[in-house]
């Protein structure tokens, strides 16, 4: 079952089109920045974009900052919203379940495919951005430094002004990729649950996006501070803490924990609803 879902995932051109668009946006931004040599000043525009002119190896992080606020959640919500509702919408769900396939197993297979899509997308954005960054901005170390990193060199400057060695930069970028992937799994879980509730994949995707927009609005309200730490988007931007010196783990830890809770709760709700749902289409 899982293999079938993964093959479906790989064979659907629209999935690759969405990944291509997500990888293409940072590419477009990089081309403009490289041609004009005009990056936004530090502290303005997408995080770390100002740094890429001096170090292309930071571009994966900048690329993730570009797609994180809107495009990545939209793509994930659309894909996850289509998981069950898409099958129902096309009339395939009833036939799918007439095979000796348990509903829980089907849901599990959908979840695995969803996870593969999210992780693959985030990793591909980072990889293509790395290739773009090193090609257009170069990957030469900023400079050799003395002191505790004697044997190494500075690949980039952290937000705290100190240098990051190439190894540190790679590890921190991997941490940011993992954090963003887990954050997107939270979106996917909400959309997957809604996908079991409605037969409209568009409705499920829009429902998940509505939840995210609501969360974004509440995060900015002082009057909603009591629920602020529990909102799904509260810690989304905490991935930037990987690029401080030292790494500030507080919000990163909480971000992982909040997403784990959202994934757990909404997957459980999806299972509870889908396992005994009347399948009419």
């Amino acid at each position: 079952m899982i293999r079938v879902e993964l093959v479906k995932l790989a064979r659907r051109p629209r999935n690759w089109a969405s990944v291509a668009l997500l990888c293409g946006l940072p590419l477009l931004v990089a081309v403009f920045v490289a041609v004009t040599h005009l990056a936004p000043p530090p502290g303005q525009g997408p995080a770390l974009l100002s740094e890429v002119l001096s170090s292309g190896s930071l571009y994966p992080a900048a690329a993730l900052a570009i797609v994180l606020p809107v495009f990545l959640p939209v793509a994930v919500a659309v894909f996850a919203g289509d998981s069950i509702a898409g099958e129902a919408d096309s009339g395939m769900l009833r036939y799918l379940l007439t095979r000796p396939v348990g509903r829980t197993r089907l849901l599990w297979a959908k979840l695995v495919a969803l996870t593969v899509y999210v992780v693959t997308t985030v990793v591909l954005i980072a990889l293509t951005a790395y290739a773009t960054g090193t090609l257009l901005f170069g990957s030469q170390p900023v400079a050799a430094i003395r002191g505790s990193l004697t044997t190494s060199s500075v690949a980039a400057t952290s937000l705290s002004g100190s240098g990051l060695s190439p190894v540190q930069l790679i590890l921190r970028t991997l941490g940011a990729v993992a954090f963003i992937a887990v954050s997107m799994l939270g979106v996917a879980a909400i959309a997957l649950f809604l996908s079991t509730v409605t037969d409209s994949s568009l409705g499920a995707a829009l429902g998940a996006l509505a939840a995210l927009i609501t969360s974004e609005v509440l995060v900015t309200l002082n009057s909603a501070s009591a629920i602020n730490p529990y909102l799904p988007t509260r810690y989304w931007l905490a991935w930037i803490d990987f690029f401080r010196q030292p790494i500030l783990w507080r919000n990163i830890d909480r971000g992982f924990a909040v997403q784990a809770i959202y994934v757990g709760v909404f997957l459980a709700a999806a299972w509870a609803h889908f396992a005994t749902k009347d399948i009419t289409s």
Binding site: S54, V142, A143, A144, I145, G147, S148, V154, T157, S158, G161, S162, G163, L164, Q245, P246
Partner: peptide, 11 residues
């Protein structure tokens, strides 16, 4: 070391 600035080259 945490409370002493270590400016990277280019700063």
């Amino acid at each position: 070391a945490t409370v002493i600035p270590h400016p990277a080259p280019g700063v």
